[in-house]
Structures are given as structure tokens and as C-alpha cells.
């Protein structure tokens, strides 16, 4: 009885699926999907090698400090970093006095102790990086209707995040003539900037990095070229997204080694217990 109902139900599903398949195939033949500019001209992120890559990856504090400098002097004007506190910077090798000074150089929201009105005060180590705009509406209004996203988790919130940031920052270019020829309607609109590493190819953010002179790196650091700054800020964002990455790798190896030895012993014990039982 179950078998008869089963076969009937099976035929029902198979028929419904075949109908969907036939309709879909008919549509695919009669109205083939037209290619889109995004589909043809989007590029996957360029390769980016960082010290934090791979199973042995750890942080290059010097590079991340440079990246932090780029964030502070360039990106912070529009992008928040709301999940990172100034105190976290001690992990990058800054001492407490330096962290205090960095924190104090930012104005964070506060309350006037006499009137109770909202005001700003210099940041403390326990404060989080302040947002450049009080709310999304203000952010939208100031940026041609596009909200600059928070950067705290950017390196994890995109596929191949660090390489994506690096590619985006270095990927601005003129719209290819071939694109305009094939898709005349896809001309980059006013206030937008062509960037093949951005999923829809047109980005509201103007090229933020301009090259030497924009920031000054300290003694013993490479020249702050656009490429170098883009790499450094990507490295910084890997850290902000996953500050425990180095500790995770450091913990992982002993755990893995221990488990391999344990499993080896467990295998010997297993063989030992079964030695006179054929199975």
C-alpha cells in the first residue's frame, strides 16, 4: 500500500519537475538571458600577500601601524570603525601613553556635565572609534546618497576581503571603450567612479588614495605610494576584523599536534584491544 502511494507521489513530483524543466528550457531557448556589463567586466580581486595569510600567518605590526595611519588620516573622514576601541591598539605595539594620545586626538560624543547637552570630548582609551556621521541619513546626505560602510569587519564581510579592499583602492580606471561600445547604456553616472573590482562596476567613493604626500610614513618605512598604502590599510583591516587571528593560529598548532599524538596512541590501543579478534 505504501509502495503504491509512494509511486503515485513520486510520479506527481517527477511530472511537476518535468513541467518546470520543460518551461525553463523553452524560455532559455526563446529568450536567452542577455549579457550584462557587470557580468562581463567585473574582475575578481587581485592577489594580495600579507603576513597574516595561511596557517602560520601572524600580524606584521609595523605594516598594520602604517595601515592604521592611512585609516586615521584618510578613511576615517567618512568610514567608521565602530567595533574597535582605542585600547585595542596596544595589540599593535603602541604603549599606553601612545594609545592615550591617539584616543585624545579623536573627539567622541559626550555629555556636558553642567547642562546635560550632547557635546564632544577627547577620547579615552576605553572609548571606541567615533563615527564620522551622527546617523545614516547624515552619512547619505554627505556622500551622494551612498552610506560609507563601517570598516571594522570589512575584511571578513566580503569574499577574499583583504584582497578586495586592496583591489578596490588600486582599481580605479577609465571605463573601457569596449564596455561603452557593447553596453552604451552603462556609462558611469555623475558622482560615480568606474572600478571593475566593485560588483556593479560603479562606485560612489572617489579614489581615496592619491600617492606620496598624502600621508608621511616614519623612518624606515617604504614610500607611501598608492599601492603601498592600499596594502597597508588592507593589512590593518584584517586585524580589525579578526584581532585574535594570530592567537588562533598560535593555539591551533599545539592543539593539532596533541591531537595527532593522541590519535596515534588511540590507534595503537585500538590495534592492541583487537589483536586477537579477527574482524
Amino acid at each position: 500500500m505504501v509502495r503504491i502511494f509512494g509511486i503515485l507521489a513520486g510520479l506527481f513530483f517527477v511530472a511537476a519537475l518535468s513541467w518546470s524543466l520543460a518551461t525553463g528550457a523553452y524560455t532559455a531557448i526563446t529568450e536567452p538571458a542577455s549579457p550584462t556589463a557587470e557580468h562581463e567586466f567585473y574582475k575578481h580581486p587581485k592577489h594580495l600577500a600579507l603576513a597574516s595569510d595561511g596557517v602560520f600567518g601572524k600580524f606584521d605590526n609595523q605594516q598594520i601601524q602604517r595601515g592604521f595611519q592611512v585609516y586615521k588620516e584618510v578613511c576615517a573622514a567618512c568610514h567608521s570603525l565602530r567595533l574597535v576601541a582605542f585600547r585595542d591598539l596596544t595589540q599593535l605595539g603602541y604603549n599606553e601613553a601612545e594609545v592615550k594620545a591617539i584616543a585624545a586626538s579623536f573627539q567622541v560624543p559626550g555629555v556636558d556635565p553642567n547642562t546635560g547637552e550632547a557635546n564632544t570630548r577627547p577620547g579615552l582609551a576605553i572609548d571606541y572609534f567615533p563615527k564620522p556621521y551622527p546617523n545614516d541619513i547624515a552619512a547619505r546626505a554627505a556622500n551622494n546618497n551612498a552610506i560609507p560602510p563601517d570598516l571594522s569587519l570589512m575584511a571578513k564581510a566580503r569574499h577574499d576581503g583583504a584582497a578586495y579592499v586592496y583591489s578596490l583602492l588600486t582599481g580605479y580606471q577609465a571605463q573601457p571603450a569596449k564596455l561603452l561600445k557593447e553596453f552604451p547604456d552603462s556609462k558611469t553616472g555623475p558622482g560615480l567612479h568606474y572600478n571593475p573590482y566593485f560588483p556593479n562596476l560603479n562606485l560612489a567613493m572617489a579614489p581615496p588614495l592619491s600617492g606620496p604626500g598624502q600621508v608621511t610614513y616614519g623612518e624606515g618605512n617604504p614610500q607611501p605610494t598608492v599601492d603601498q598604502m592600499a596594502k597597508d590599510v588592507s593589512a590593518f583591516l584584517v586585524w580589525t576584523a579578526e584581532p585574535k587571528l594570530a592567537k588562533r593560529h598560535q593555539t591551533g598548532w599545539p592543539v593539532l599536534l596533541f591531537l595527532i599524538v593522541l590519535t596515534g596512541l588511540a590507534y595503537l590501543a585500538y590495534q592492541n584491544v583487537w589483536r586477537d579478534k579477527k574482524h
Binding site: 509512494g6 509511486i7 513520486g10 513530483f13 518535468s18 518546470s20 524543466l21 525553463g24
Partner: peptide, 14 residues
């Protein structure tokens, strides 16, 4: 997916 789904139901029910 449609072809694979057809087999899935056909396998168990038919």
C-alpha cells in the same frame, strides 16, 4: 537542479 530533483524523488518513491 530540476534534473537532480527528479532523480531524488524517483529514487526513493519509484
Amino acid at each position: 537542479s530540476q534534473i537532480a530533483s527528479i532523480y531524488y524523488f524517483a529514487h526513493f518513491l519509484i
